[in-house]
Nucleic acid binder design. Structure first.
Lengths: 141, 141
DNA sequence: CTGCATCCTTTTCGATACTG
DNA sequence: CAGTATCGAAAAGGATGCAG
């Protein structure tokens, strides 16, 4: 009884999925995972303002974050991932001491704009969401 | 030398941040984290097609995923989170055996549409991203 | 200054068994 | 069938020390 519309829905979804993703190295899944982590969107926000060196970027992220600062290790990891996907460009100009600058690529600026649209949508619904949470937490405790 | 434009950028960013988020229970960060996890966007995609029971939803997610199926435990957790934020509605109609149905709320449908836009943007750039990765992985190996 | 290696903690997820 | 509890594996993140 339930299986007829159910199978139809599955078939439709399966077709839609196999159209792009579903197979190994799915950029959509991975980039969404990146944007969903603790720091990447904030990194994009800061890099949007220009070129930054590792240490300055780290300090600024710490000031912008409500929680504790990003560790040096994780900042390097996140920047590497963003660079690998083509969202961030890294340039080395000195060597002792090293001077390394990070900036957004055009693709990175575009990504930031797209992500921003979603984040802004969420922010304008933030009160809705908070209210829903209070209702949920109060209902069956 | 660097600090003048640097401070200016920081001030601008700090103002922008404290305008909404930055403080505890930031829905934007949390919802982005949700969308970035392994299953939530896929759950939204399936629920977009109508009303689903827990077991059917679980089976379908397994078929749509390239990797292994979602565990029962995690599906319950994800659905609870989505319900708590007001994106998913849960209705119980039976009790022995229980019959529980999940569907999107209007807010949930809207969220799915917004997230979809970002995912589609990424998908249309998937080849760009893959190419950037190959270049990066080849360069200094 | 930047990056890496190492170690440790926290979080997330999967497997299994059990209850109503 | 839906949900929970418990356990263990894996991943993400943080702290520290060291090298170029």
């Amino acid at each position: 009884m339930d299986s007829a519309p159910l199978h139809q829905a599955i078939a439709r979804l399966a077709a839609e999925m196999t159209a792009h993703g579903k197979h190994r190295d799915d950029p959509a899944r991975e980039v969404m995972g990146l944007l969903g982590d603790r720091w990447s969107t904030l990194i994009l926000l800061v890099l949007e303002t220009g070129e930054w060196r590792h240490a300055d970027l780290r300090r600024t992220l710490g000031q912008l974050s409500a929680e504790q600062a990003i560790s040096q290790r994780v900042l390097t990891l996140k920047l590497r991932t963003l660079e690998r996907d083509g969202f961030v460009a890294r340039t080395i100009t000195g060597s002792v001491p090293p001077k390394v600058s990070y900036r957004l690529t055009p693709l990175g600026r575009d990504l930031h704009g797209q992500a921003r649209a979603l984040i802004d949508w969420i922010n304008t619904r933030a009160d809705n969401i908070r209210l829903a949470r209070e209702r949920f937490d109060a209902t069956d405790s």
